[in-house]
Amino acid sequence: MLNINFPKIDKKTFNDLELSLAEEKIKINIRGKNKDFFTKVGKITSIILPTEANTSSSNEKFNALWLSPDEWIIYFDGKDTNKVINNLFNEISKLNFGAITDISDHWVCINIKGRKTFDLLSSSSPFNFNSFKKSKNNVAQTVLNHTDVIIHHKEVDDVNLFVRRSFAEDLWLWINDSARFL
């Protein structure tokens, strides 16, 4: 047996704030430009990739986040990596319609929720959350304490924060330290 180890992230509760690891999740980076690409993605995931900048779309299983005009992340709860990724890879990468890359372990998902969520993020991100926080399904790629993050505004005052695995523990400790001062 090989054991699974995630970065050391324990659930923490502060006033109006709850922080926790939101794993395990499958995350797939998908790149593509042409019509066939969008059709294939739609067929396999039943999701329409958002084309509007800084937004996301979701269905019962999948969340698709806009990253750039030809790049998205699809993420969902689960472990059956092979099936969806292989489907996408065989139908898109192999046929040269785009690129499918498994990045489930490249990013770690941290969930932050509560009334002070955006207060917390503002302590070390230059991003303007004023309108971002007003509606869900917004997505931002920005920096938090000089670390690259992707922020998905999933529900009201409830965000999934994606950080690269190697940075995760450091950012986690930083976020906890920030939360003390809210």
């Binding site: 900048a53 800084n54 750039s68 005009p69 230059p126 991003f127 303007n128 790629q141 920005t142 920096v143």
Partner: peptide, 17 residues
Amino acid sequence: MFIINCPYCGERDQSEF
């Protein structure tokens, strides 16, 4: 620190660029 209006993402702080 200025603000750059990324043609893809909109207005962002210079530190992102």
